[in-house]
Design a protein around this nucleic acid. Structure first.
Length: 278
DNA sequence: ATGGTACCCTGAGAGC
DNA sequence: TGCTCTCAGGGTACCA
């Protein structure tokens, strides 16, 4: 989509999780997509009009794309054909002057799209309170310790809090905690105690978070059920899950092997090893 | 302030 | 085969 001109936008219904904003399609049609980026779990497409198209996939949203197909054939390509729960269709002309179609599909409609006015990125309610990105070296032990200082909430809940770290979901929190040998029920603030033990714990968790995210991206994401990449293929990170959705299976930590436990924390499943995660 | 819970919605899978 | 029940990558509103 980057560099493409949007020819038209078609909506299959008036809302996803929220209603589309006023004149949604008209405000995008005719615009060029200047840049594509990501913040936390939001996708951002900056338009030549100055507005930004803000998108979230929720739990079940996916994009699929048909491009690089000569001439009018693009719109007859099998991947261009509409299917159940296709809610938004972008018809584009790419920077190489090729027609292309990008389709947003979302069975549960927990995803959404909206438009952010020019210059409104820092003040938009959905974006302004987001915390640290989990990629890159800025998320290190000392930063994590400072961020969790005084927090009595369980580590699991603290890691899912998008105001602290922005972009971790249920799977990657479970995986990072297992790698760091930390219990999801531990008080977050205990990583901020003075002394070398807490400092090492915080550093290990920060490293585990960065590694899990990097490896998942490398593997093309985690495909549960029908989740897919834009070319229709599945990511394969789920094959490397150590604890997520593995209740009763042996913990893969070397020398451990205790069965993985499932508990519920703030309404979501947590998978972890009671034996080696402390 | 920070739980925990219900809810938005559809589909998949298990059990009967 | 078909029914009912449970659960699911997220986030927010509301309660105690």
């Amino acid at each position: 989509m980057a560099g493409a001109r949007v020819e038209s936008v078609a909506l299959g219904r008036p809302d996803l999780r929220f209603p589309f904003p006023e004149r949604f399609a008209e405000r995008i049609a005719g615009q060029r997509i200047e840049t594509l980026s990501r913040r936390a779990k939001y996708l951002l497409a900056e338009l030549s009009s100055g507005e930004t198209l803000l998108m979230h996939l929720g739990m079940s949203g996916s994009f699929r794309a048909a491009s690089g197909i000569a001439g009018a054939d693009a719109f007859h390509h099998p991947r261009s054909k509409l299917a159940a729960h296709d809610h938004v269709i972008f018809d584009l002309v790419t920077s190489d002057n090729e027609p292309a179609r990008v389709i947003y599909n979302d069975p549960r409609r927990f995803g959404f799209m909206t438009l952010v006015e020019a210059g409104g990125r820092d003040t938009h309610p959905l974006l302004k309170d987001l915390g640290m990105e989990p990629t890159g070296n800025r998320l290190d032990g000392p930063w994590l310790a400072a961020a969790f200082a005084g927090k009595r909430t369980p580590l699991k809940a603290a890691l899912l809090d998008q105001r602290i770290i922005a972009g971790l979901g249920n799977i990657y929190v479970c995986e990072a905690l297992n790698r760091a040998s930390l219990s999801p029920t531990r008080e977050a603030g205990t990583l901020s105690r003075r002394g070398p033990v807490a400092a090492r714990r915080a550093e290990k968790l920060a490293t585990a978070i960065r590694e899990v995210i990097a490896e998942a991206i490398q593997a093309g994401g985690s495909s549960l059920r029908d989740h897919m990449r834009t070319d229709g293929t599945l990511g394969y990170f789920q094959h490397t899950f150590r604890v997520y959705d593995r209740e009763g299976e042996p913990c893969p930590t070397p020398g451990c092997g205790a069965p993985v436990t499932r508990i519920v924390q703030s309404g979501r499943s947590t998978f972890y090893c009671r034996h080696c995660q402390r």
